[in-house]
Amino acid sequence: MRVNFTVNGRPQEADDVWEGESLLYVLRERLGLPGSKNACEQGECGSCTVRLDGVPVCSCLVAAGQVEGREVVTVEGLADYAKQRAEHGGCASGACGTSLQDAQQWAAKGQDSQTGEGTELSPIQQAFIDAGAVQCGFCTPGLLVAADEMLERNPNPTDADIREALSGNLCRCTGYEKIMDAVRLAAARQSEGV
C-alpha cells in the first residue's frame, strides 16, 4: 500500500509498504532516515522515539497505515523543529521543515564552542554534546526527541520530572548521569533565553 504523511514538516509518500510494517521501518528503509534507531522492536528501549502529531511514541509500535495524513517529527528534523518553535511558536505547514535530502544527509556536527563554526543544533542536541551525554550514541536520538518534548511542555523540570519523562529510554552504556546533566543544562539555557 501507499502511505502519505508529513515528515519533519514536508509531505512524503512511501510506496510498496507492507500492511504489517511499522512506522520505524518506513522511516529507515523507505525514506532513508536512519536517525530513529531500531533496537528492541517492542517498545521497551525508546531508541525509535518520534513525535506523532506532537506526541512522543515508539515508532516501532505504530503501524505504517496508521500515520496516513498525520505529522511525524524525527531526530533529523529536531533542529528545525526547535528553531521554528522558538521563533514562531511552531511551523506553518510547508513553509518550513527539513527536506528529505537534508534529513538524509543530516549529521550532528554541532557548533564549536571556540570558533562558533558548524551546523545549528537544537538546544537539547547542543546540551548533549556540551554535557558529554553521548557515549555509543545509539540511544541518543530517542532521548533527544523525548527530552525536547518534555522541555516544550515543562520548561522548569525537577529531576523527578526528567527521570519520568525519560523512563522509556534505555541507555545500555548506563550514562544516565550525564544525560540528566544535559537536560538540566538545556532547561537552564532555555530559561535564560540563551
Partner: peptide, 24 residues
C-alpha cells in the same frame, strides 16, 4: 483491531501473529 498497537505491533514485529486483516 489495532488501537495504540502496543500489544498488536509487538506480536507482528516478532512474527507471533500474521493477521489476515488489521482493522485500524
Amino acid at each position: 483491531p489495532i488501537a495504540g498497537g502496543t500489544d498488536v505491533m509487538v506480536e507482528i514485529n516478532f512474527d507471533h501473529r500474521r493477521p489476515e486483516y488489521l482493522l485500524d
